[in-house]
Design a protein around this nucleic acid. Structure first.
Length: 274
DNA sequence: GAATACCTGAGC
DNA sequence: GCTCAGGTATTC
């Protein structure tokens, strides 16, 4: 499940292989993944060089010549693959070839929850893929974090998952950060101290940074643009460790469903609010 | 707020 | 052959 560290790992491994190259040809038969339309996508990309890249939350944005962008969201199972020939794997939905005849960029997505969007200008990016998306979670300044989360009555984990509040945290890093901070996923920030939220931001920053340093988490089939899996899944403290001992205290990790998501926590280190 | 839909493969 | 996994949009 690509979250912020995984998307950033893809960005870092992808860019050296496509920066400065000019898109020649696009093949995208599976047009449900394509925005805003198949026609705009296939006509908009060819002829433009890739100038650089950016990321907000889980959204990867390639800056193209002429002020345009190619935005990519990997959804649950999206992969960006650089290869000289179309990969043998199933579910390869999009091909982007370059005019130098070198490796092409392939988009593979088993569950098709992701998307690729051509945005002719920055306004289209802001009105489309970036609409309603909050500030990036990585490196978020403590004051801003507290400002955006404090005083809310929804469960704390729901806030972390809400991309409008902060962008990039998914189910893995929400559970991991809450455990590191010793906070219950069910806590309400209206009833927490600001010190609790500051501790949570520290925990989140540590978790994201450590995962990024290890190439992200490969729980299912995540790989970066070089086809390499991350290794942070071995360092998970609670995520998908139901019934196993909490690394901090040895209590058995529990699982509940919150906001429709499996939620893992230590009942001892993260006691439920009254 | 919760519930459902989207989507497929893994694992029972 | 059923349930589960979850990022996001949509609906109640």
């Amino acid at each position: 499940m690509p979250e912020l560290p995984e998307v950033e790992s893809v960005r870092r491994t992808l860019m050296p292989r496509i920066q400065g190259r000019r898109i020649a040809k696009v093949n995208a038969p599976q047009n449900k993944l394509i925005r805003p339309s198949h026609k705009a996508f296939c006509k908009g990309l060819p002829g433009r060089r890739v100038l650089g890249s950016d990321r907000r939350g889980k959204l990867l944005m390639l800056q193209l010549e002429g002020g345009a962008y190619l935005a990519v969201h990997l959804g649950m199972t999206g992969q960006l693959i650089m290869a000289a020939h179309r990969p043998q794997a199933d579910h390869v939905h999009v091909t982007i070839a370059f005019d130098d005849g070198g490796e092409s960029l392939y988009y593979r997505d088993v569950r098709r929850f992701g998307f690729l969007a051509f945005c002719p200008d920055r306004a289209a990016l802001l009105a489309g893929p970036l609409a309603n998306m909050g500030p990036d979670a990585l490196g978020m300044e403590a004051g801003l974090f507290v400002e955006r989360l404090a005083g809310r009555r929804v469960p704390l984990k729901s806030l972390l998952l809400d991309q409008r509040v902060l962008a990039g945290v998914g189910n893995i890093y929400a559970d991991e950060a809450l455990h590191r901070a010793g906070l219950s996923p069910l806590a309400r920030t209206a009833e927490l101290q600001s010190a609790d939220l500051l501790r949570l931001n520290d925990a989140l920053q540590e978790t994201l940074a450590e995962s990024l340093a290890r190439g992200g988490s490969s729980v299912k089939n995540f790989v970066d643009a070089q086809g390499r899996p991350g290794t942070f899944q071995h360092a998970h403290r609670v995520y998908r460790r139901t019934g196993q001992p909490c690394p901090a205290c040895g209590a058995s990790v529990e699982k509940i469903v919150l906001a429709g998501r499996s939620t893992h926590f230590c009942p001892n280190c993260q006691p439920a609010p009254r």
